[in-house]
């Protein structure tokens, strides 16, 4: 299971002597000393990080109230709303990506998309479309994470607080905020990690914008510099810290 990770670490410390870093040749820390020494790599990383931050914030803002409502209330159409959050997880990413691509292209010329969507939002393709794609996929993860924090115990606590005379804002601050907070943060971090990791949606929605995974995919035809592995190791480290932080936070602030 860890073999590919070990390969990635070992090959980031390699000077293959050729343009393709597939064969171990000479141990070298060169790629680590000059991690951005490949044209466009810096831009690709910056774009990917920007997209990941915005997409996860967007997913959290949109998903938190939805997850809370799904867990807290009974309402007409609840099972439909439930399915709507489940579907993006079960749809092949390639179909989702293809859909966004066709709508983007159509939004430039045809009704109803041209009239409904603000001009320039989806076309030409670029970072905005990638953010939209990643936030759409990530939304479901936030909703599920937040919804999972709404349990019977919290409802009982809410009841108790109300009986003791707490007004709505106080109930929200003292009961719901601490209960939901870990779900919100872990959902957000998950979206961040998914966005950095995602290839398929990015491939379909980035257009000519340079994003790390699609840029590296295109690069593979010409060369594979060890810097790609260096970035892989760095992403691994960042995601590792993020997930550990999310887990620790979940335990400390959790109701249970």
């Amino acid at each position: 299971m860890f073999a590919p990770v070990l390969v990635m670490i070992r090959y980031s410390l390699n000077d293959s002597g050729t343009r393709f870093n597939y064969v171990l040749h000479r141990f070298s820390v060169d790629a680590w000393m000059h991690p951005l020494d490949v044209p466009q790599l810096g831009l690709a990383i910056r774009n990917s990080l920007t997209v990941a931050v915005i997409a996860s914030l967007l997913a959290v803002l949109l998903g938190t109230p939805f997850g809370y409502a799904l867990g807290r209330y009974r309402f007409r159409g609840k099972s439909m709303a439930s399915s709507l959050t489940f579907l993006p997880l079960a749809t092949p990413e390639i179909v989702m990506g293809a859909g966004l691509l066709t709508v983007s292209v159509a939004s430039a010329s045809t009704a109803p998309f041209k009239t409904l969507l603000p001009e320039g939002l989806l076309y030409p393709l670029g970072m905005v479309t990638v953010v939209i794609a990643h936030a759409t996929l990530g939304l479901s993860f936030v909703i599920i994470n937040v919804r999972a924090r709404v349990d019977r115990e919290t409802l009982v606590l809410e009841e108790a607080a109300k009986d003791l005379g707490a007004i709505a804002p106080t109930v929200f601050r003292t009961i719901w905020l601490p209960a939901l907070w870990p779900g919100v943060v872990s959902g957000g971090l998950l979206v961040f990690a998914i966005s950095l990791d995602d290839f398929v949606l990015t491939n379909f929605t980035a257009g000519s914008t340079v994003m790390f995974p699609t840029w590296a995919y295109g690069l593979l035809r010409r060369e594979l510099p060890p810097q790609v592995d260096v970035v892989g190791v760095m992403m691994f480290a960042v995601s590792l810290v993020a997930v550990i932080a999310a887990g620790a936070l979940g335990r400390r602030r959790g109701v249970r």
């Binding site: 990791d197 970035v231 691994f236």
Partner: peptide, 10 residues
């Protein structure tokens, strides 16, 4: 946790 593409390259 690392990039999907880098995993495939590995």
């Amino acid at each position: 946790l690392t990039s999907y593409l880098v995993r495939v390259i590995s």
